[in-house]
Design a protein around this nucleic acid. Structure first.
Lengths: 129, 129
DNA sequence: TGTAGTGTACCATCACACATGGTACACCTA
DNA sequence: TAGGTGTACCATGTGTGATGGTACACTACA
């Protein structure tokens, strides 16, 4: 379901958030799909329940999943929880951060842009299935 | 010379690294240019000397600046300190990270790619001056 | 009606990174 | 020689991530 890589620089909870978000966005987990329980996933990954709960809280805040108490967590119908201004702002921030990280690697702009474009296409392709 | 924004999510030392790297890559600080002394910049930004020293150490490691003991720090002649494989690997990592951050914002791929392309062009333009 | 499983909310604790403050050393130039 | 330079330590405080544990309200099912 979700894999944790110890060598990854990202915190465990972020790996869970990123992994699930990707599966939801690509449609691998369609709206209505049930998500592993907090205790179940924690047990499977041999991590703490609080860590999983915090990751799920993040996804809930993003409007990707919702909890039905006593039942479990489920993928939501897609909806925007953020205003367009807020989304624009966050996109700009992320682009800036990305540019700063990449600029020192001294690649040609086209190489970087192509790579981003290809990665986004991969996601869009899965979405189309 | 360099500005520190307290509201920024980045650590102070990273802000210094990013700011100086940008000035060097764009040519605003050409090879041979002298960089503010550790104590001088620390005094100006009212931060600790160790914080500045650590930022400078990072840039030295990247091969962008070099220290002449007792004299100061200077911008290097451009050179690659990393192998092409290492650079490719880091680019891939950064692209992956970027995609993960942006995917949840639900923008059209073209919008994201255009934004990245434009930002990279801005840098390239300054470089050309 | 219980019981088991669910999400959620706390609290205490540990580990790590970031930043600070201070000191010391070797180096270069005037 | 004196002052300014980069560098290397050490101790300390703070914030975040992760852990371990407990407790509560809710739902489904036997």
């Amino acid at each position: 379901m979700i894999q944790i890589v110890t060598g990854d620089t990202r915190p465990i909870s972020k790996q869970i958030v990123d992994g699930l978000r990707m599966k939801i966005v690509t449609g691998e987990l369609p709206p209505g799909a049930k998500i592993p329980s907090v205790r179940g996933l924690a047990m499977q990954l041999t991590i703490n329940t609080n860590t999983v709960a915090r990751a799920y809280a993040k996804l809930t805040e993003e409007g990707l999943i919702e909890a039905r108490k006593g039942l479990g967590l489920f993928v939501c119908q897609p909806r925007q929880v953020l205003s367009i201004d807020e989304r624009e702002k966050r996109l700009d921030e992320e682009v800036d951060k990305f540019i700063h990280e990449v600029i020192g690697l001294n690649f040609e702009p086209e190489v970087v842009v192509d790579k981003v474009s290809n990665k986004l296409s991969e996601v869009a392709d899965k979405k189309g299935d």
